[in-house]
Amino acid sequence: MSEELVQPCARTTRRDALRNIAFGLTTLGGGSLTVEAAQHVHSAVAAERAAGPYRPKAFSEQQWVTLRRLVELIVPADAVSPSALDAGAPEFIDLLASQNPELARIYYGGFAWLDAEMRRRYGKPFASAKTEQQVAMLDALVEAERLLERHSAEEAIYRRGGTYKMFSRYTTQPGTPLAAGVRFFDWVRKMTVDAYYTSAVGIRDLGFVGNTVLSKYEVPVEVVEYALKRSPFGAR
C-alpha cells in the first residue's frame, strides 16, 4: 500500500498554498511547492484504507482477486516504481463500478468471460491459473486486438470502394472469437493506466515536476542544449 495515498496531511495544506498565492508570490521567493507539500489527501478511499483492508463495493471476492491480478500484470512493479496495486487501481475501478451499473456490468461480464475462457484453455479460472497461463491469455488478447485493428482499418478502405456493399458481409466479420475479451481487457487496461498515472507513484514514475507555484519561469539551458544536440539542427 502506498504511503502517498494514505499520507494524512503534509506540511503545507492546500488552503495554506492558496493563501500564499493570494497574498502575492514574491513572499515565496524563487521557491516552489513540492509534490509532497502540495499533497493533502483527504479522500474517502484513503480514509477507508487507513481504517483497515479495503472491502470492494462492487465486486465479489473472486472478482476482486481477479481484478487485482489483472492490474498488477498491466502495470507491474519494476526497478523504477511499484505496480498498479500500489497506485490504488483496483479501488479506483471498484469505486466507479459501484457508482455505475453500466460499468459494473462491463466488469461482471468481462470477469465471467475471462474465467470461462481460462477454464476452457487451462481448466481453471484466471486468478488461480499460473502466471505463464495468465500472461499467455493476455498476450492472446493483445494479438487479437491488433488483428481487429487491422480489420477495421481495412474495412474503412473497403467502405469507400464501390463493391463494399456487395461484400460487406465478409468485411464486417469480427475475425476473432476473442473480440469480447479484447474489449473487456481494453477497459481494464485503460482504467488501470489512468489510475496509475494519476497517482502519486505514477506521477513520480513519469518525472512530472510541474503543478507548482513559481515567481519566475525559466527553461534550463542544458535542457535546450540537450534537445538541440540530438536534433537535426545540432548544437546552438
Partner: peptide, 21 residues
C-alpha cells in the same frame, strides 16, 4: 487550480466514470 488528480477518488473520471462514456 493546483489540485492533483489523486486528490479526488475518481481521479478526474467523475462519478461512475462518466468520462469513459
Amino acid at each position: 487550480e493546483h489540485q492533483w488528480p489523486y486528490q479526488v477518488d475518481h481521479r478526474g473520471a467523475e462519478e461512475g466514470g462518466k468520462f469513459y462514456f
